[in-house]
Simulated assay, not measured.
Amino acid sequence: MTLRREPVLLAVSSAAPDTTIGQTELFDGFYSQLYSGVPHARRLFIDSTRVQRRHFYWDPRRAYSDGFPPTGALMDAWEQGALELGRRVVPAVLAGHDPATVGTFIMVSTTGYTCPGPEVRLAAELGLRSDIRRISIGHMGCYAAITGLRTALDALAARPDELVLVVCTELTSMHCQPDAISEQIIVQGLFGDASAAMLLGTRPADRPVGHPTTDHPSAGAPACGVSADVVATRTVTHPGTAEHMRIRVQEDGFRLCMSPAVPAMLGSTTPPFVDQLLEGSGLGVADVRHWAIHPGGPRIVAEVGAALGLSEAQLRPSMEVLRDYGNCSSATVLLVLQRMLALDRPEAGDHAVLIAFGPGLTTEAALLRF
């Protein structure tokens, strides 16, 4: 009889571009001129976002000094940046594992597109198998890391003796738009650049999950072992809400629209969604000690946290990542997971929920057990 195997999150890693710019410095050095005709632009850009610094592959102060490049130039730059960050996150997350055991490579991004994608060159450069199964998950938004996670679970169900690599790379800095409106000021004040990776495998069902490693780095550090069972995942898309958050690819690049109604909507829809995620686990919200909530903005974290009755300490990983990185689209929830591991140091038997939101409006989540 073949012993059933359970999916396990084995490691996470992250990297960000070396250029770090403080929010005030960035506004004064570039955006103050771009938004000079908008009342309260400085308050919207700095105070309302709660971001203090971000990492940029393209420094807006130089990249847009001579105008705004067309979409083709943006995609060329995205590919090069995705390769550079991938060369850092993939070796880190694979440390201690045989690359030949990785059977599936899932590449996630909302901020760029090339065919073939950067995962083809990364696989070749980093010694992954030539017969590796490649999956590209594109243009799904900030929740797509969890889309990548549940796609990995499907691969593990079919081939439990292999490992699955998931890489989320987002370079939002090349999607600046000149529209001098309040919505775009907040968007340009929120988003930053980063890459994050997960490695998943399986364990025999009769063997308990290993303890998480004790030397958890913070978000942005090379890698850390996790050893967490993936207990459940869940997805929901709310009908009639698509226009509240959307991304369109146009001649002059990508355009993101985000309604100010989104935080309140997520505050009302998230508690019943989490109840459904936890259904069958024997857990209630109060039983989950650790939370990695995607910081789409400070109001989203505040509304969702209040609706779930979470403490300031439970929201701290999300708010610290927002402060230090901004919203890095799909990579962000994995940055929060790394920060959560560093701050909370989960113990064996603890549970965590990873939850992210994006266009649709769509919510995705995963329940982990350490």
Score class of each variant (00 low, 15 high):
Thr19Val: 10
Thr24Asn: 13
Ser36Asn: 06
Gly37Glu: 03
Gly37Asn: 03
Ser48Arg: 12
Arg50Gly: 07
Gln52Gly: 11
Arg54Ile: 01
Tyr57Lys: 00
Phe68Gly: 01
Leu74Ala: 10
Met75Gly: 01
Asp76Cys: 06
Ala77Pro: 00
Arg87Cys: 00
Arg88Tyr: 00
Val93Asn: 10
Pro99Thr: 01
Thr104Gly: 01
Phe105Asn: 01
Met107Ala: 12
Val120Leu: 09
Leu126Trp: 02
Met140Thr: 13
Ala144Arg: 07
Thr147Leu: 11
Leu149Asp: 09
Ala152Pro: 14
Ala157Gln: 10
Arg159Tyr: 12
Glu162Ile: 12
Val167His: 02
Glu170Lys: 11
His175Gln: 07
Cys176Trp: 07
Gln177Cys: 13
Asp179Gly: 08
Ser182His: 15
Ser182Phe: 15
Glu183Val: 15
Gly192Gln: 05
Leu199Lys: 04
Pro208Arg: 11
Gly210Ser: 15
Pro212Cys: 06
Ser218Asn: 12
Ala223Cys: 15
Cys224Gly: 13
Gly225Pro: 08
Gly225Leu: 15
Val231Ser: 05
Ala232Met: 04
Val236Phe: 15
Gly240Lys: 09
Thr241Val: 12
Ala264Trp: 11
Leu266Met: 10
Leu266His: 08
Val274Pro: 03
Gln276Cys: 10
Val301Met: 03
Arg323Val: 06
Tyr325Val: 06
Asn327Met: 08
Ser329His: 10
Val333Gln: 05
Ala342Ile: 02
Asp344Glu: 13
Ala348Tyr: 07
Leu368Ile: 12
